[in-house]
Amino acid sequence: MTQLLQLFANPLVYLLVALIAILTFIALNGLILVYVERKVAGFIQRRPGPFEVGPHGLLQPLADALKLVGKQLVVPRDADRILFWAAPLLSFAPVAVCLLPIPFGPHLVGLNVNLGVLLVLAFSGLNVLALCLAGWGSNNKYALLGAARAVAQSVAYEIPLLLSVLCVAFTSGSLNFAEITASQTHGLLSWNVFTQPVAFLIFFVSALAETNRAPFDLPEAESELTAGFHTEYSGMGFGLFFLAEYSYMIVVCAVASVLFLGGWSGPFLSGHWWMLGKIYALILAMMWFRWTYPRVRFDQLLNLCWKWLIPLSLINLMATALIINLVR
């Protein structure tokens, strides 16, 4: 037994176990979130949602997953085969790394590094590359337009996202997720959402845009671009993009709850329950937006970013820096 525990003390083994745990978590969440999304959509649209497969349609995501796995993989003629298949893999792979440094409990963390925030932001940036490759590799005009939109959108929204994260880094004086959480454990009012409400708003709006969720789902705008960058993908190619989208939702919601909502801190329950509760609350808010709002136009989306969010986050950042300087 002690030998087994010593094995876990080996950082490589620990990392491997953490990665496997995270992948399991993501896969399970993919199934659950698909079900939850459809049920939430059903609730908002006053219909029961999936109801046929299993009790209350509980097995529906499983049936969907089986269907996706069973589909033929089609590569369009004249498409760039390597890029075409690299894109969905590249879209999904970084997710596991993104969840690694996030503390799900006081001791439940895959990789406690000092630059955790940076690690997550850097790896989530890879997603844009995947969308770009998908658009280019499919040899499809709709996909190309979708990819062009994805790049413009992600590049624009990364700036306010970073600036709002910087505000939190300023106030807590660290880029380590564990330390940021620890700085918010002194009761409800020590949560960054109360000390940095503007940064939280900017972060959440940018996160919506980064994850291509409605009302900012322009890269896959159905009514204009049929399915945008993943028009040509069938079967698991589409499935991976789909899984990646839901996984990024978890990532940004986890980051948001650590940075702004106190992470695992909370009374009565164990830390990981609080963390999961906060993540799912944010995800539910994202689903709520998706099913109630129309889609914004592309130039409106960029205007919102360049004319409002970036100046606002800059002002917020400078104000934060000023206040911190004065207090010290």
């Binding site: 959509a41 908002i44 649209q45 006053r46 219909r47 409605a214 009302p215 789902d217 705008a221 159905e222 009514s223 099913w291 109630t292 709002y293 129309p294 889609r295």
Partner: peptide
Amino acid sequence: YVLDLGGFTPILY
């Protein structure tokens, strides 16, 4: 029309 603009729910209402 609202569906065209990306709002999915109104058509069901």
